[in-house]
């Protein structure tokens, strides 16, 4: 293992799992006022401060913080984020949508949901003894679900975690690029950018670790 990868790995291990878990919750549903409060001055704000110190994640985290820095109260800020969430992810924006589903980026046809990645994720969840909560109403390849599983796997480490990270690294950068083109306010674009940077970096490190072993 190289010195560089050791340093980077140390940075990731401190908060990478927490970041995956946090982003899973965030992408599942837009934050309410209490969640915005946490992002501004609570536990999530602390986490964001730590993550923002990571050079790869700094740009995305900064965009998120900038979007939260307005004068409006937490409720108004939450409303703004919810509107942007709807326009960016839910299809309200029509063709200019960044679908938070792996199928949209890796499916048989562009922008089509419920493709092979949905089945692949269902199988991965099965392997871990999980299924998507019925009242969530999300397919298994929704970004939030993938991140929840990634967080779970990362907390244990091992090959399954590395595979999940590579999976995210395969499509999240394209998703993040779409978010950047759509989300004018920048919170969701920042979150996607930070996630893409984390996933790509972790995947690269894993590859480097494998190379070191061979």
């Amino acid at each position: 293992m190289s010195d560089h990868s050791k340093t980077a790995d140390a940075v990731a291990s401190a908060d990478a799992v927490a970041a995956l878990d946090w982003l899973s919750v965030l992408f599942a549903r837009p934050p309410g006022a209490d969640a915005v409060a946490s992002h501004r001055r609570g536990p999530v704000a602390d986490l964001m401060t730590r993550l923002g110190g990571d050079a790869d994640l700094a740009w995305g985290i900064a965009r998120m913080r900038a979007a939260l820095d307005g004068d409006e109260d937490d409720g108004a800020a939450a409303a703004k984020l919810e509107r942007a969430y709807g326009l960016t992810f839910e299809g309200i924006g029509g063709p200019r949508t960044a679908p938070p589903y792996e199928s949209a980026y890796r499916g048989a046809g562009p922008r089509r949901l419920f493709q092979a990645p949905t089945a692949e994720m269902e199988a991965l969840l099965d392997e871990q003894g999980f299924t998507v909560a019925a009242d969530i109403g999300l397919p298994a390849d929704h970004l939030a679900v993938e991140l929840a599983l990634a967080a779970w796997l990362a907390s244990a480490g091992g090959p399954a975690s590395a595979a999940m990270t590579r999976r995210l690294a395969d499509w999240v950068p394209d998703f993040a690029a779409d978010c950047a083109a759509i989300d004018r306010d920048g919170f969701w674009a920042g979150a996607a950018a930070a996630l893409a940077a984390l996933a790509v970096r972790e995947a690269r490190l894993d590859t480097a670790r494998q190379d070191d072993r061979t």
């Binding site: 291990s13 401190a14 908060d15 799992v17 927490a18 878990d21 946090w22 899973s24 919750v25 599942a28 549903r29 934050p31 309410g32 209490d34 969640a35 409060a37 946490s38 609570g42 536990p43 999530v44 986490l47 269902e122 969840l125 099965d126 003894g129 999980f130 299924t131 998507v132 909560a133 019925a134 969530i136 999300l138 939030a144 679900v145 929840a148 599983l149 779970w152 907390s155 244990a156 480490g157």
Partner: peptide
Amino acid sequence: RRAFLRAGVAFGALGFAAPSLLVSGAR
């Protein structure tokens, strides 16, 4: 708990109510 066992890092709650996306069991 897993993270603590692996890296000695314990992270706190997010500070707000959040949905549980995954349940244990078969679909």
